[in-house]
Structure formats: structure tokens, C-alpha cells
Design a protein around this nucleic acid. Sequence first.
DNA 1: TACGAGCGTACGTTATCACGTACGACGCCA
DNA 2: TGGCGTCGTACGTGATAACGTACGCTCGTA
Lengths: 209, 209
Amino acid sequence: MTVATPEKTSPSKVSADGAAKPLDVGPRIRALREAMNLSLRDLGERTGVSAPMLSQVERGETSPTLTVASRIAAGLELSLSQLLRLDEGEGVTVVRRADRRPGGSRARGHSYALVTPSLPGQRAEVSTHSLASGIATGGPGDPPMHEPGSRETALVTGGTLRLVCAGTGYDLHEGDAVTFDADLPHHFENPGPHEARFVAVVSAGLRRS
Amino acid sequence: MTVATPEKTSPSKVSADGAAKPLDVGPRIRALREAMNLSLRDLGERTGVSAPMLSQVERGETSPTLTVASRIAAGLELSLSQLLRLDEGEGVTVVRRADRRPGGSRARGHSYALVTPSLPGQRAEVSTHSLASGIATGGPGDPPMHEPGSRETALVTGGTLRLVCAGTGYDLHEGDAVTFDADLPHHFENPGPHEARFVAVVSAGLRRS
DNA sequence: TACGAGCGTACGTTATCACGTACGACGCCA
DNA sequence: TGGCGTCGTACGTGATAACGTACGCTCGTA
């Protein structure tokens, strides 16, 4: 999904700004630390990072390495990716049933539609799927493999469904849900006699523009 | 959610290992780069980071600073938090309909259930809701306000639903979906004569207190 | 075979990250 | 009022991240 075609994406410098964002993680760290009622030395004790270093990072005077940033995140009891999450996205967007563009083909037995706006900055893509009896996802025209690091949740809203992920099968019935790493090879099958319907949520599929 | 009470958490060194994880982001960068058919110099061109530096980072010989890590992430067309998403849960987790703990109260007209595992580090929380006619969410026992920065998607799977977000109302019918900032004051109402059912996806809340 | 173009990596230099120590400011209690 | 403890920050030093250059390598191609 999203972008990242395994093609020659090079010809255009994606953003070229290079400088990217000022990365003002400092105030965030300070806010989190103060929210925990920790002094710089306290946090230094917990993280193994010196208090002056923490002070400089909080004020944005230096950019810590990933190792120390990871230690700081651990000391704040969150993962590094959580600590660095200061992305964006704003407002309210309604996607009408009639407006969304369907994918797949009902003739082949698998049809789906994206119900979240296809805008950058989206953190979770939600889609509805319908799978005919005996059919499996992964045919031509289906959404391609997800990008590395993404995770997926499938919630069965009708019928029975079977997830095959990394060679292992998981049978799901109506109301069941499954969460898994979406970058592993996987597909869904419909073993039952009836049509299967499910909602898929792929997270972390955001791209930059 | 997650952990980290805003209390005096100090007495116990949270993990004390300090060293934390080896943070092997290198192989991941290499995999992503090769997936884009980019050479080290190509990526260096896109990111403003020298090719030898990229090589060292990929092989784990050095730990880049956040600034260069951010630039690398930008060159790979992802956010830094995405690039570092090699922590948090892994594998496949099935939540059976019978296993999930319901919330709300059917007597009050609003019942819901979380279908994603309630583990820290989850990027997207998916829940199913049922709202009786004339009832609005937000009553006692309902899930509290979401954290700053989080976003929510609601997909109507049955009946009609009305979202009131920051004072504005949005009418939704079966199959419609809406995405909005979950940290704005909001609630759902069921104007129709029938029961309303919808799936809610809350993504990426970062924790503050 | 020879050769240029591309690849990834080893080398040496510079910039800066990260440490330990030390200083002024503020609050508490004798 | 003085002394004690803690806070956050300004030093100076050693470690290392990041750079530019240059080497050996594998391909297509003449």
C-alpha cells in the first residue's frame, strides 16, 4: 500500500530539503519528564545519561544519538518511536459510501474499499473487504504488500475468515479480530460456505510528501 | 493508556539496564533502501548524508544522531518514528469475540469492546460500538477523552450515526466513515429509530498527563 | 582483455556529542 | 540569618559521529 514502489524511484529527489524538520523533541522530553516529577538527575539516573546532556537535549542545543535517545525514551517509559511521534494531520474528513473508490473485483470474489482519506499524514488506513466463499486475497489488482514496519488488524464482521500469516493459519469467526505484522507475507482465505466480510486497519502507513 | 503514572515513579529504576536494546536499525535501513533500488550514494544524495556514513549506520558501526536519522527517514519517505518502529509488539495476536472484555452498559444504550490487544506500543486501537436509538456516547463508564495528537476513524456498519465534533455535526449512514482529531471534544449520537453499530479506530495517541 | 561506471567500504580529519566537575539560584529548616 | 540540599546550566576534556577522499570490487561493453 501507499507508495514505495520497488521501482527506480530515484529520478526525483523526493524532498531535497534534507534539512527536514528542526526536530524539536527537546520540549517534549522536558514536558514528559516534568509530568513524571523527575529532575534532570533523576532521569539521568534512570537512563544512564548525564544530567547536563539531558539539559542540552531538552533545550535543543545538541542532537542526541539514537542510542542515548533510546535510553531517554526508556527512562520515560516509552518506546523511541513513541517519543518521536510528533507528526500531524488535522480536521474532520467524511468519506461517503458512495464516494469511496472500490478496489478488487466482485467477479473475482474479492472487493474492498478504503474508508479513510488517502491523504498524507494518515496514521491508520481503514478498509472494508468482502471475500466470496473459497476465495483468497492476493490476486491481481489487490493491494500490494505493506511497507516494512506496518501492522494490521482485521475484524470479522460477517462469515468466517482464515488468516495465513508466515505459513501459519488462524481461523476467525464473526466478531473475532487479529492483529499482526503486515510486512510478513500473508493473505486471507474464506473457507466457509458464505461470503466473508471484514474490516482491515493498517497502521503506520503514512508517507511524507 | 500504556503505563507511566504521572506519580513519583522514581524509587524504582524503571529498567536500569540503561543499555536498553542494541537498536539494530541498520538492517532495516538497508532493507528499505534496497527495496527502493537506491544505492548508498543515491540515498546520500536524497538525504544529505554521506554514503560512508550511511554504510556505517547500516552495519551498526555507529549510532546516528537524531538529525541525521531524521534525514535518513525522510530520504526513505517515512517519518522517523516509522523508521524506528522495530520495537513494540510482534507476531500475531488473536482476540476472540468471547475473550474481549466489553465496556459501557447495554442498559444505558451504549456498549463497546476493544478488539485489539491491550498492550503498550499498539499503534491503533480498534473497537466495536453499539448505540441504542436516541443515545449519545460520553456517559459515565465510557472511554475517556483521547490523548493529544491522536486521530480517530469511525466506520458505520449498521444504522445511522451522528458525530458531533467541536460543535459541528456530521450525519453518517451505513457504510460512511469519518476521520477526525480525537483530542477535540466529540461524541456520537444515534438519531435514527434503529440501533447504530460502528467500528472505531483510534491511532497513535501519544501520552501526556 | 582492457576499460569505464557503478557499487560498498577503509582511511584520516574535523565537528560535535557526551561525560564529569563546578557554579549561581532557589527553597527549607535550625 | 546562615547552612544544607537540590535544582538547572556553564565550563573543559575525551570519545565518536560525520565528513571527504580513495581503494578494491563486480559488472557491461568496446
